[in-house]
Simulated scan of single mutants.
Amino acid sequence: MTALLELHDARFAYGRRTVIDDVTLGVSAGQALGLVGESGAGKSTIFSLLLGLAAPHAGAVLFDGAPLDRRDRRMMRRFRTEVQTVFQDPYSSLDPRQRIDRIVGEPLRSLGIARGAEAQQSVAEAVRSVGLDADALHRYPHEFSGGQRQRIAIARAIVSKPRVLLADEPVSALDVTTRIQVIELLAHLRAETGMALVMVSHDLSAVAALCERTVVLQGGRVVEEGATRDILDAPTTAYTRTLVSAIPRLPRLPREA
Rank of each mutant, 00 (worst) to 15 (best):
I113G: 05
E143F: 13
I20Y: 01
D72P: 03
A114R: 07
L217G: 09
A246T: 00
E256L: 15
S93T: 13
S44Q: 04
G59L: 00
I158A: 04
G226H: 11
F79L: 11
V23C: 02
I100M: 07
L50W: 15
F87C: 04
Y14W: 13
D230N: 13
E256A: 15
Q31L: 09
L185I: 04
A155E: 03
R17F: 09
A209I: 07
E118P: 01
F12E: 05
R179Y: 06
L62F: 05
E106I: 01
L166T: 06
I100V: 15
A124N: 00
Q98M: 14
I231N: 11
L253P: 14
Y239W: 06
A206D: 12
H188E: 15
R156D: 00
R241N: 05
L53N: 05
Q121N: 14
A13C: 12
R139P: 12
K161I: 02
T85E: 00
R74C: 02
I100G: 08
R70Q: 10
H188W: 13
L111H: 10
F63G: 09
L25Y: 11
P90F: 12
A246H: 11
I154G: 02
E184P: 04
P96C: 02
A227P: 12
A32D: 10
A234L: 08
F63H: 14
G52K: 05
E118K: 13
A238S: 13
S28P: 03
Q88T: 09
A114S: 10
L111M: 14
R17S: 13
I100R: 03
P162G: 03
G105M: 05
M1D: 13
L137K: 03
V36R: 03
K43S: 07
G42K: 02
G40F: 07
G219P: 06
R151I: 06
I113R: 05
I231S: 08
G42S: 06
G146K: 08
D233V: 07
L51A: 15
Q84M: 07
L25A: 02
L62E: 14
P254D: 13
G194C: 14
A66E: 14
R16Q: 11
R16S: 05
L108S: 00
L62T: 14
G219T: 10
P251M: 14
I20S: 08
G194I: 09
L7G: 03
P254G: 08
F12C: 03
H142V: 07
M195K: 07
I247K: 04
L232M: 08
Y91S: 14
R229Y: 04
D9R: 15
A136M: 01
F12K: 14
D168Y: 13
H138I: 14
T81P: 00
M195Y: 04
E169L: 09
L68D: 04
S92Q: 01
